[in-house]
Amino acid sequence: MKRESPPVAEIVLQIDGKAVKATEGMTVLQAASSATISIPTLCHHEKLEPYGACRLCMVEVEARGRKSYVVSCLYPVARDLIVRTRSDKVDKIRRVILEELLAHAPHSPELMRLAQEYGADKDRFEKESSFCILCGLCVRYCAEIKGKNAVGFVDHGARRKIRFVPEIASNECWDCQECFALCPTSFAQAAYFLTEALAFPGRRKAWTP
């Protein structure tokens, strides 16, 4: 006898005091957004695999009496989980993360809007205007959606940066440019055009509509 696949289990959890229905396998972020509870994110994109790097979507969760801080873009929903999307600690995490990122991109509209909400001071830490906040949206979009890997991360630690790969970018990017709109600081396009200027100048002149 053929066994029917079990129905996807429905889970009820509590987000900000509200009972929220979710299905097994969902993340807390997905459950929250289905209940129109907003959690700020910078590296999240619904078409891409959860990345868990910006840490801005951290929330406080309580399960079996134990409180912890987790990133909602990856934390799976569970029965009776209690989620608080705002608390003093959560707000502090977000504020300090924004202050750290504002040291690199003090004029990014997205960061400035969030800074206002969380009381982040854009001048709190020493500036190093690299503009890129390394959310990886361009890198991951190019790899996961376009399958091209024209832009990638190089180096590690505080020296990590994005770079376009000239050999790939010269063939692929002009007709795509889809990552530009994803970039919260407009650095992706700057990095592309710098690569173009250095590695394959004239490519645009040769291009005819």
């Binding site: 910006c54 840490r55 300090v96 906040i133 390394l134 990886g136 180096d155 590690h156 630690g157 505080a158």
Partner: peptide
């Protein structure tokens, strides 16, 4: 590794 903000920054 430089991936997450609070560590890298």
């Amino acid at each position: 590794c430089g991936k997450c903000v609070p560590c890298r920054e």
